[in-house]
Design a binder for these strands. Structure first.
Lengths: 157, 157
DNA sequence: GTCGATGCAAAGAATTTGCAGGACC
DNA sequence: GGTCCTGCAAATTCTTTGCATCGAC
């Protein structure tokens, strides 16, 4: 069943190409460090913090300054190419996003191990869309975070 | 109409009493600074950050060290007497919560002015409850954040 | 050649922690 | 009187910013 299923599928594999194209179209230049960040973000499945991105790049031999990581994330977020997510830790997390809302999803956060798992549910989306129409507040986007125990932690609890 | 309405009602006025009682029952002591924090949290309508709490207390002539504010919030959160909320700013916000889930609600965040407005919607709650049952992940709580423009900012945009 | 992008290091902001003294029970 | 609580200040962590340099177009 598709409804309410957790999503094993990684983000669109062409996110990287689309992001690079969007950046170029907006007049931004291409560069080694920026491409490295884009590739890392596009190829990973779960949300990453700026620190994790910098660490993974260094581990992969493509060290990029933290300032550049932050500036790249800020740029990508302003172009809605990444979605920022605050799940409660000390740092913000980012994940690839597509402007049209494709692959839109939400997150399950494990209170025990911190693992973040994406899921999607059409009914929830419908409820939120309807709700938005009834509120005296224009709604442009939304985040839903469910907290609990992931299967692994629930088993060992 | 009650559904999907923003909530003008302040949190239960007896939250303060309940919180003080819960703390005492758990073996914690009462003190001036702690009571000042409890009173401020219980009497305000919107979510507050640790910094805002410290500032308001100082303005009210009841200065409390920031460390104490943080320690009190940590304690209250661990006892589920306050709910922590990350709306995207640099700091976490807190609001009174009742263990039984009474006055449970969610938030609208204005992308322009940052104003946070609570709302509640039974249908959304139902969709989330059903969803929780279908997921391979135990769900203990949830946050929903809708982003957009508040009426005031929408009017002046 | 121009102007955007990068890296380093310093600045800032939020939160945590060590410690000595004071208050509650 | 013991133990919890508090405040201060130092330490940490996350993020932003100034500035000189480098590189893409």
């Amino acid at each position: 069943m598709a409804a309410a299923a957790t999503i094993p599928t990684p983000p669109a594999a062409d996110w990287i190409d689309r992001a690079e194209a969007a950046l170029r179209a907006a007049g931004h230049r291409s560069s080694g460090p920026r491409s490295a960040v884009l590739e890392l973000i596009g190829n990973q499945e779960c949300v990453l913090s700026a620190r994790e991105i910098a660490d993974e790049l260094r581990a992969g031999g493509r060290e990029v300054g933290v300032a550049t990581v932050y500036r790249t994330l800020e740029l990508l977020e302003s172009m809605r190419l990444v979605q920022r997510l605050d799940v409660g830790g000390r740092s913000a997390r980012y994940e690839p996003a597509l402007p049209g809302g494709e692959h839109h999803h939400h997150h399950l956060v494990c209170d025990r191990c911190g693992r973040v798992t994406p899921f999607e549910d059409p009914r929830l989306e419908r409820a939120i869309a309807d709700l938005g129409r009834r509120l005296d507040h224009s709604v442009g986007g939304h985040d839903v975070i469910l907290r609990g125990l992931c299967p692994r932690c629930a088993a060992s609890a």
